[in-house]
Structures are given as structure tokens and as C-alpha cells.
Nucleic acid binder design. Sequence first.
DNA 1: CCAACCTTACCGCGATCGTGTCAAGGTTCC
DNA 2: GGAACCTTGACACGATCGCGGTAAGGTTGG
Lengths: 120, 120
Amino acid sequence: MSVDALTIHEAAETTGWSPRMLRYVESMGLIQSKRSPAGYRLYGPEELQRLRTLRELLNAHDVGLAEMGFALRLRREPELAAAVDAWFEAKPKRPDDVPAADWLRFEQEKHQRLLEAALS
Amino acid sequence: MSVDALTIHEAAETTGWSPRMLRYVESMGLIQSKRSPAGYRLYGPEELQRLRTLRELLNAHDVGLAEMGFALRLRREPELAAAVDAWFEAKPKRPDDVPAADWLRFEQEKHQRLLEAALS
DNA sequence: CCAACCTTACCGCGATCGTGTCAAGGTTCC
DNA sequence: GGAACCTTGACACGATCGCGGTAAGGTTGG
């Protein structure tokens, strides 16, 4: 059982979640672990790290799991993401006042944010 | 009172929301109307259209107002958006297996989605 | 083989979401 | 000045969220 993977209780202790919550997080589709032949959840270093960073993210920004679940939907359902983007972008009265160049720049700034966050 | 702006009851009838919900939507920061000197809410064609498209968006994709509120937070708090982006992007075991070129392409596809949504 | 794990599936429970409704008071208009 | 609006604030209420617990049963290891 100790082949570089922790059981749910062990993973719970090192990550600060409860076993109950690890199953809940999995049910949201946020972090799923491998399974032993008998169906036991096995958490590798990868998942443990992700669980810790998720925890930090949540109480650093006062975000809930349901909200992260929605963020996940936004990445999995491009139609939804496009619809939401379009609705928020639909604020300027004349869309031609703010043509492609501007939101392109906005998106590039988003890339910049991503880069900065990734390099920390 | 009929200077191209509807009262909350009139706006409610033409948009399919209830007056109560219009105030609720406003409290989420999603759509705020102008106010008359006495503080009455006045909805112009702009807001009416936004209310209708919001309604369509919600029941087309089974999204709640709270989730749209979160989407709004993502646009208003770049730190939060960056943290969420970074967490989801942190899936590949070796980040160098999927270097800049790849998520750049992903982001460009996102732009494409946005464009398509905007042109409909 | 038995204690100590694990699994899924429930019940509960305070908090929030999405609504309606009602109260107490100000505004508009004829 | 009174009917018909509007305002904010509260109470209510079913549904979901975030979490703990328990039950019923399978797995593991000394």
C-alpha cells in the first residue's frame, strides 16, 4: 500500500481536508485520485500538492468549492464560456467603439497574469 | 416618467423577471439601473436587453445568479482569476511537456470562441 | 480471523441561494 | 389628498452547499 501513494485518511491528514471532503472534492470533478485494484482511493504527490494549493486558493480568496466547480464548467464547456464572456463584454453601447484590438490586448494581459502566476 | 426608461414593474413585465428579482440581480452587481431624482429605478433599452440575454444565458446553460456573480468576481479581481487559471493549468505533471506554445494556442482558440459568440 | 482500514449511500444541520410577500414609509399624478 | 406607484428591510421557505456522522458491506495485514 505504500508505493508512493497515500490512502484517503493519510492524504486527509497531510492536506488538511477531511476524508469526507476529499470524496466531496472528487464528486465536484476537481481532483480525482487513482484507485487500487479493490477501489481504494490512492493519492500521489501530484494530487496532494493540488489539494493543498486548492485549499490555499479557497480561503485566500473566500471562494467555495461550488464556485470552483463552476470555473471547471467554464473550461469544459466552451459554449458556456463564450456565452458568459459575450454577456460581460456586451456592456459598451457600441461594440465597434471597442474593436478587436482592445479585447485582444485584454486577453494578452490575461496571458501575462497567467504567466506571472505560473512562475511563482 | 416615460422618457425612454421603464419603472421596475414595467421592466419586470417586458423581461420576464419579477421586480424582486430585478433588485436581487442588482444586489449581485450584475445589472444596475439608473435612478430617478427620487431614487426610483429606471431601466433603459440597454438594461432591458441585458436582462433578457442574462435570462436566456441562465436557463440555456443551467447557471445560477450566484455563479454569474462569481464570473463577475473573476473579471473584477485579476488576482483571483490568475490564481484560478494557475490552479487549473497545473494539471500536467511536467509543465515543460506542454510549453508556452500549447496554452498559447489554447488561448487563441478561446479568442476564436469569443469572436464567434460576438458575431451572432 | 479479526481489527482497522476502505467503499457507497444515506440522514442531519447550519448557511446560502432564489423567490415571494409583507411592512413602513416616500413619490407621482390626477 | 388619495390611489398607485416606488423605496429599503425583514420574515419565510424549499433547494442546494459544506460538512459531519452512521450504516452496511468489502479489503488488508499481522
